[in-house]
Write a protein that binds this DNA or RNA. Structure first.
Lengths: 217, 217
DNA sequence: GGCGGAGTGTGACCGAGGTCACAGACATGC
DNA sequence: GCATGTCTGTGACCTCGGTCACACTCCGCC
């Protein structure tokens, strides 16, 4: 337990500022891609802080569609969980690992104590909460006012790696945007016809990043 | 200045816990309905805390539609402003008074100091931030997955006063939901045909609150 | 090699809801 | 009264995007 914790302290600086007793109660966990971290309606048992890998938080509709609210990067925690812990509400979404994830979990009681005592933890939580609110507001705007082709174009431009590649299936892109697979396939094909992207099985390659970023504007 | 401040302290208990110097720098302001509190892109100058009246925070599309993100009730502050102050970002929406509003404004510098020193202020800000995030997540879900008739029905049920009245024009309802006036008029008329509401100029009266709340479910 | 599952491409269809264009109804002030 | 502005009702129309139904392709595996 102390071995992975040491690694975690590298990735998550504010852990060092926590009281020793809190740190001792922390657990580390490893998750496979697709593993669920929190379920809608859960009463959270502890605060997970991602050390490595990436997770996403999403909502689902009863017709089976899904929509990603935001992603959790290394060094970030599941801020919705923190807010649930402090307010006693059930978790209002789903959180799942997208890649293999290593995380540190502070048990609820320890988190409560640490939150009262350690200013760096409060700053982390507060800052993250503020950023998430901003991100979700942008998402509301996109869902309410923007067409899916525009949203898809931006999504591609934002999530491509250094070489302009994006290893996602159309299905996965549809879940990120809250639409259906067919709509994504249609739209991507149209992008390809216009020379903006190149398509391969399980992969999108960006040809005109700038055009995608400003698509529809 | 001290007179209205005294009243404010009644309505906003955590003010009492602030350092004396911070309180002295606070201003009180009165706003007419429709007055804009913050504009999109603003660099906020201070944190407004609503003492009386109600304000709404909304986004607009370039085609002129609007969508309410949430409302600010007495005792609450414009949490987006707090987050902008602490992060230095521009305000990402519009905030305007819906009724006449009395507010206390903590200048940015005083807010920064008070936030570091006064635990009750931190708790207020943190709790409000967490609730707003939850509310906006519900909004994303509604906009992405629910039909406007369902959203309108719930909106009516939630916002009616004790006698089941709601003094709003169809235009105002459209702005709350992010749709157009015609769609609201059509849908309300359909509700009236089904006996769920009674319509009058500038007013909706609820006849079947329960049916509206569970509409479409 | 053949099978099966995952991923993709596409046409057909349709419903929700956004937009336009009016026509009335109501309210207010002159 | 009349005039003017605000609010509401409604039909016509069209577009976006969700759904259904398939066919086809790629890949790994037995």
């Amino acid at each position: 337990m102390t071995q992975p914790l040491a690694a975690a302290r590298q990735a998550v600086p504010f852990l060092d500022a926590l009281p020793e007793a809190v740190l001792r109660s922390a657990q580390t966990v490893s998750l496979e891609p697709g593993a669920l971290i929190c379920l809608e309606g859960d009463l959270c048992q502890g605060l997970p802080i991602v050390v490595e890998g990436e997770a996403r938080v999403y909502r689902t509709s009863d017709s089976g569609r899904a929509l990603t609210l935001y992603r959790i990067a290394p060094g970030e925690s599941c801020i919705l969980t923190a807010s649930c812990l402090l307010s006693g509400r059930p978790f209002p979404a789903f959180a799942e690992a997208e890649t293999p994830v290593e995380a540190v979990v502070l048990p609820a009681a320890a988190f409560g104590r640490a939150f009262a005592e350690a200013a760096p933890l409060r700053e982390h939580v507060f800052g993250l909460l503020a950023r998430r609110l901003g991100a979700v507001i942008e998402l509301v705007d996109a869902v309410a006012f923007q067409r899916v082709d525009v949203r898809l174009a931006r999504h591609l431009a934002e999530h491509a790696d250094g070489e302009g590649r994006l290893a996602r299936t159309h299905e996965a892109l549809a879940e990120a945007l809250g639409t259906s697979r067919e709509v994504v396939s249609r739209t991507l094909k149209e992008f390809e016809r216009r020379g903006l992207v190149a398509l391969a099985r399980g992969e999108v390659r960006i040809r005109e990043a700038a055009a995608l970023r400003t698509y529809g504007a």
